[in-house]
Design a protein around this nucleic acid. Structure first.
Lengths: 236, 236
DNA sequence: TTTTCCCTCCCCGGAAATGGGGAGGCGCGG
DNA sequence: CCGCGCCTCCCCATTTCCGGGGAGGGAAAA
């Protein structure tokens, strides 16, 4: 069995998605668990990831849009720290149905998921799952918790690297006045209020907004504010 | 000098902000660097953190709202992986002025910052800074990079524990329909287009927008979209 | 020096958003 | 069972925004 260091290096050296799949399988073997999954949860419903769940389950999950039901996804989305599946809320009817189906598809009764967040609201999960009793599971998590956090971090790093739309178009920066305008708009002020705040005429303000909109390739003011925010050009 | 393990345990056992301040000072000594800072960049402009920068600099930073200028904040906000300050964009005039002032206040010429993100758009930075030449700095980062990532993670975990009321009365999530509406608005569609997309009347759509605006405590549609975006409730 | 931004101001008409109101149906959980 | 939250539809008047146009001055870069 490969040493963890070696596997981490293989992860850092990965240059394609197939490499990640190979790494995650090695990691699963290293930690002696049934499953290990990296899972990018895009709110659009598109999902991307790699891991050792069976294809049937993965396809079913995507087809049924289970990320809207899955307590692991829902729970982790509101947490920062990793969470044991047992601590999640499985009380809902759809959640229990989902769990039953997952077990049928070979997902372990134990699970530990680490939420990871990147820029622009990116959200992903790194999960280990296994079939065993509570005590052995607790011991396993206790001894490998920190390693798993690091692995999750590096996995997400790689996934972001591979994602093509990381640098889509040149983010031409906004002028200071445009930044002020956008910031105040994003803070809820109306156009008139912003103009007042900046001590300029509303007409002038509009020129800034239009200019910013143009630079951002935005279709309207709301879109421009959203893009400026998403690109970190303004901070609300 | 305390061992890292011991310090990590002290961090996990911390039960108050003062403990974090003590831990970060010990960590600074452990890594033999000039400064170590954990820095929560709140979307409101309020900032919270602990670290070893001088009070004069911290006060100046907050008073001048430097987080809108600071290339470290701006750069990290668009990245996932930790970044060496040298790799950031210091070309702007305000950025250079900021840097000069920072150096005057005792901030090191070398720096390494790790972005951390939590639920609801939380964003924080964990930074080490030092005054030394490039080679020694590279060696230091190379040998401690992973440790720093873990420390950053645990620091944020603690900070989130201590500040449960960062987003106090507003963890109310949006309904699915509201999320769809906000998302499409943030994508640049007009109200009529969104209504068409969702195959509902424009009047109905308005109810969603108003409802979302209310839940988000927003003053208008643009504000609501900005808040939804900042809290990670929608993704563009 | 010329060019290229940036900042400032102004016109207009049409389109869109806003903020009030009211009303009915459906599904889930206490 | 009843309430509550969600989804759906409609009215109105008023305010605000949008997207075209044009114009001048100043500062920095090329």
């Amino acid at each position: 069995m490969a040493r963890l260091e070696t596997l981490l290096e293989a992860l850092e050296d990965a240059s394609a998605l197939d490499d990640l799949q190979a790494v995650i399988e090695s990691l699963r073997d290293h930690f002696r668990v049934d499953h290990m999954v990296y899972h990018w949860v895009d709110s659009g419903g598109d999902q991307y990831g790699c891991g050792t769940y069976f294809d049937t389950w993965r396809d079913r999950y995507i087809e049924q849009e289970y990320h809207r039901v899955d307590p692991v996804v829902l729970g982790c989305f509101q947490r920062f720290h990793p969470v044991d599946w047992k601590r999640l809320d499985w009380s809902g009817k759809p959640a229990r149905a989902f769990l039953a189906e997952a077990l049928e598809h070979g997902v372990g009764n134990q699970g530990y998921s680490i939420p990871i967040r990147g820029p622009n609201g990116q959200f992903a999960l790194f999960t280990v799952s296994h079939r065993c009793d509570d005590a052995s599971w607790a011991a396993l998590i206790d001894s490998h918790g920190r390693d798993l956090i690091l692995i999750a971090h590096y996995f997400n790093r790689k996934a972001l690297e591979f994602e093509p739309d990381r640098a889509p178009d040149i983010p031409r920066s906004l002028s200071p006045r445009e930044v002020e305008a956008m910031t105040l708009l994003a803070t809820g002020y109306s156009r008139a209020q912003v103009a007042d705040r900046l001590a300029i005429s509303e007409h002038t303000l509009r020129v800034y907004i239009e200019s910013a909109r143009f630079k951002l390739g935005a279709l309207n003011t709301t879109h421009a504010v959203a893009r400026a925010l998403a690109r970190g050009l303004i901070v609300v």
